[in-house]
């Protein structure tokens, strides 16, 4: 249930941080190198591990988002977050800190919450991406979404979609979550208005109602 929110769950993929750390000197801005299954922290071997060379220009890739395959043309450096917002107009996922610290850009990759500002769009290929738009809509509210509204768990609302994504994943994996569990679920989501108590109350009401917080 608890895992690294700073990168994709698939260890073969290269997170933005690992990419910059490990490949900076080799690839910098001129290309992205995908290595065969290996530790994400290992520097890609420019000699014999190359399976695909990408960039530096934009290229068209396919991303499976909310059950639909979307084609998007992006440079290798474009994050999943920017791809969603700037290229696919899926703006429910918010850009706040752009460094994996605030949780506002949380999406699900294969059902697990990740901060989409820390995932390159290229690395999201082959994964099931779920955004807030895929989780619920105003016309198709989930029990958790309805509980958020009922408990007034959003003030300015800018952190709220990210909160929803984190909480939905937590309740899906632990339908009997207690207060400590729901607190932990959004520990990586910063709210400046101070909605946390209402977020906890909303989530616990779903647990008590026997719903799983899924759409």
């Amino acid at each position: 249930m608890k895992h690294d929110k700073h990168g994709p769950p698939d260890s073969r993929a290269i997170s933005r941080r690992a990419f910059i750390k490990g490949a900076g000197a080799i690839a910098a801005t001129t290309g992205l190198i995908r290595t065969p299954p290996a530790s994400a922290d290992a520097a890609p071997d420019a000699q014999d591990g190359i399976v695909e060379r990408i960039g530096p220009g934009a290229q068209t890739i396919e991303l499976k988002i909310n059950g639909e395959v979307k084609r998007v043309t992006v440079e290798p450096r474009v994050t999943l977050l920017r791809a969603l917002r700037d290229h696919l107009n899926l703006t429910g996922t918010k850009l706040v800190c752009d460094r994996g610290a605030c949780g506002a850009c949380t999406v699900h990759l294969d059902g697990k919450p990740v901060t989409s500002c820390m995932v390159l769009a290229l690395d999201a290929r082959g994964h099931e991406i779920t955004t807030i738009e895929g989780l619920l809509t105003p016309d198709r509210m989930s029990p958790l979404g309805a509980a958020f509204v009922e408990h007034d768990a959003a003030q300015c609302g800018f952190c709220t979609p990210g909160m929803m994504m984190s909480m939905a994943a937590a309740l899906a994996s632990n339908p009997k979550a207690q207060l400590e569990d729901v607190k932990r679920a959004v520990a990586g989501n910063i709210c400046r208005c101070g909605t946390y108590p209402h977020v906890f109350a909303a989530a616990l009401s779903v647990v008590r109602g026997g719903n799983r917080g899924e759409s």
Binding site: D86, K94, L136, P138, M141, F148, V149, A154, G157
Partner: peptide, 26 residues
């Protein structure tokens, strides 16, 4: 309940950062 609660919770609310229009530059 807030009139716009569902819009905020679902990410459908359009903030300034979310605005785009044809031909818009960054």
């Amino acid at each position: 309940p807030r009139v716009d609660g569902a819009l905020r919770v679902t990410g459908a609310a359009r903030y300034t950062y979310d605005i785009s229009m044809p031909g818009m530059l960054y």
